[in-house]
């Protein structure tokens, strides 16, 4: 197991995703190796951009004046963000591997982690938009990126997990279902925390 795969993934999978998928299908990387030498470097980007952006410009939510929080709070938020991304990646990879047993695809956890990371990579890069944390700007940049990521998911699964395109399609749709539910749960949970008194004041 050469370490070339890591540098390839890190530097080329953004603009040569198909090539990356094919390379990945040749190997059985260790999940820890993929995490440490590939995924984490990408996962650190959004929280970092968000920290810089929020410290310089403040969060901008529609009509509101930019919300400037003290650096300590921002650090805390960024750490939580980083943590959620790591949990998100790992849980999605594990669920993906669990599904793979149904779809008779490869069950190498390392491949699943790498696959999900490649799929998420455009989003990590597009999180550059966090440098100016205006909700709208971020939505405009991130939604098309997300649709591109979904396309990569449908494309990547059959190649990396060595399964037929039919099963790949089924599995990708199931994963989309999981991701949608996960996203809306996060939204719901943050609303609950907010209305229960964490975060800016609400008159409820």
């Amino acid at each position: 197991m050469s370490s070339e795969i890591y540098s390839f993934l890190l530097f080329k999978s953004l603009y040569q995703p198909t090539e990356a998928f094919k390379q990945l299908a040749q190997v059985d990387p260790s999940p820890v190796g993929i995490m440490l030498r590939y995924s984490l470097w990408l996962l650190i980007l959004p929280p970092a951009f968000s920290l810089i952006g929020a410290a310089n410009f403040g969060w901008r939510l529609g009509a509101a004046e930019p919300l400037m929080l003290p650096t300590q709070a921002l650090l805390l938020v960024s750490c939580a963000y980083f943590l959620i991304l790591i949990i998100g990646l790992l849980s999605t990879s594990i669920i993906s591997r669990w599904m793979a047993s149904t779809y008779a695809a490869s069950t190498s956890l390392g491949r699943h982690v790498a696959l999900i990371t490649i799929v998420g990579e455009p989003l990590a890069v597009a999180s550059l938009a966090h440098l100016f944390p205006d909700v709208l700007l971020n939505i405009i940049v991130l939604i098309p990126t997300m649709i591109w990521s979904m396309f990569l998911l449908y494309k990547g699964i059959p190649i990396v997990l060595e399964t037929t395109s039919e099963r790949g399609m089924l599995m990708a749709s199931s994963l989309v279902g999981w991701l949608l539910v996960a996203a809306v749960s996060l939204l719901g949970m943050s609303m609950m925390f907010w209305t229960l008194g964490v975060g800016p004041l609400l008159g409820v």
Partner: peptide, 12 residues
């Protein structure tokens, strides 16, 4: 989410 939070938000 913006509407919901902004409608409800109050200052100190």
């Amino acid at each position: 989410v913006s509407q919901g939070l902004l409608w409800l938000s109050v200052d100190e």
